[in-house]
Amino acid sequence: MAPTRDEQHWMYRNMVTSRKFEETIAGIYFEGKTPVFSMADGPIPGEMHLSDGQEPVAVGVCAHLNADDVVTATHRPHHQAIAKGVELNKMAAEIFGKATGLSGGRGGHMHLFDADVNFACSGIIAQGMGPAVGAALSRHMQKKPGVGVAFVGEGAVNQGGWHEAMNLAATWNLPFVCVIEDNAWGISVPKEDSTAISNNADRAAAYGIPGIRVADNDPFAIYEAAGEAIRRARAGEGPSLIEVETYRLAGHFMGDAEGYRPEGEKDALFAKDPIPKMRATMLASGVATEAELDAIEAESTARVEAAITFARESADPAPEDALTAVFA
């Protein structure tokens, strides 16, 4: 099942918005951090994990979701948040640590929470699995529509908690989908040095559920695989596992010298950048004109710039607000 024209436009828009967001963050991130890099300084302090290159996974999956569906994301969450519909101004403000942010500055970029679209993050590897399975359990028990989707990286499958949650979801036949973004690197450790098998979708056999691996970061193939997984979940047919071969065009974090990358790897990945590739595909198939895609790019840029301006111009939280919201 291929995405419709409108869906393709939506996917392209969200990929471009995400990339523009990351590029803008990257440009601002080093403000105040030169000439000597200090992570604590500048308008965006702390670690920053950018998702450049991984956009097809987020849009290919979230094209099938609505606000009621529950997504848990990773320490690298921006593309997933944007595709899930997290409010962009509040998200930018949270990343700037401002009072107007999603959590008033308590969470930051690894802890984005938007109750309006059922989106949550954890900065701990594989630990979004349990809550996404729990959301699926909640919908199942309450007989309410909605699926739980956990995005994880390929490194997460080697965590015990990943296995526990997969087994629980399968044992209870829950409306759950695990999406593995295989960007080939766990910080500096390549997948083949950390993982006994090359195709993590094969692990689905251990739980008696379908598993599929999507090659080459293809947004259309991701869309198709996710469509079937989410259809199954909504129909009460149980969980599915999807692994996507995707590309980490950035370092693990901003400031990562990436000395561990083989020479030429990044050039090869940039040559396969999914955004110009999708643009070319849409033009070739005739689902969009140059003018339409240019307009999407311009609108996305304007939206990101407005969000960043909102974040920059927002006030810092009152320091003593750190002492609030510990309990409900």
Partner: peptide, 21 residues
């Protein structure tokens, strides 16, 4: 009754609680 998987079912409880249960 759960499997012997405390990380999964306590994590799942977090998700179910956040979802209104």
């Amino acid at each position: 009754d759960t499997p012997i998987s405390e990380t999964a079912f306590i994590g799942a409880a977090v998700g179910a609680a956040q979802d209104g249960m």
